[in-house]
Amino acid sequence: MARVTTGITSSHIPALGAAMQTGTSNNDYWGPVFKGYEPIKEWLKQPGNMPDVVVLVYNDHASAFDMNIIPTFAIGCAESFKPADEGWGPRPVPDVIGHPDLAWHIAQSLILDDFDMTIMNQMDVDHGCTVPLSMMFGEPSEWPCKVIPFPVNVVTYPPPSGRRCFNLGDSIKAAVESFPEDLNVHVWGTGGMSHQLQGPRAGLINKEFDLKFIDDLINDPEHLSLKPHLEYLREAGSEGIELVMWLIMRGALGDKVRDLYTFYHIPASNTALGALILQPEETAGEPLNPRKVMSGHSLATA
């Protein structure tokens, strides 16, 4: 039987990909960010931790979907997915290899569970999908696992509610657990944390909001899932709404989780960055040492 063993969150900002591409990931600005990801990369290499398949929840940034088609929840069921050309040529990373059997199984199960999925049999994937892969796996000639891209609309309002996302995660968990093949499946929630990329209020960062969000995500996701869009917009910036995607990941892990690792950093370009490893409590491994890492301006006293 397949099972969801792990939830991971990650930033997906394009600047991280650019830092790798330009060889600046060790400089003063980006060094602490990549250092904070190093324990996750190492953890993934340990026996039993590397997933067979990642259900990678992200938002498409006007790449696969233009203004003509705006699916709230979509699932990539293709054999493979090419990196999108977002205006500077495609990111020089391997094609993303899908798992059509599991993807179709999840799609069917979700529809039967009242989530009306959009099924994508051809789709390019943008930085939202490929940057987290680069952050976790570095620069291999091919990705070490299969990936089911799972785009969520958080661009055109209204995006799905936090509650809807949390419940969707629960249905993804049930879908995975009814797949007969023995697979280690991860669900990754990407994007965030607080940031705003537009208007005179651009550059907003809210450390208190972010740290409380992480705490609630681990310990009280039911309550967290009730947070209205307006609160994300006011407190976490217009693009902070991406955090609802983390609730899909969290919903897929069941009631209780153990936080194996938490990394929080300010700033990564325009954003506050959070990267976590969570596991369902009943099958959780040992926390990393150190278990919590803060860097950059997040260390400054208020």
Partner: peptide, 12 residues
Amino acid sequence: MIDGGRSPEGVR
């Protein structure tokens, strides 16, 4: 941004 970004104080 390096100094911690724009504070949400007063702009919510």
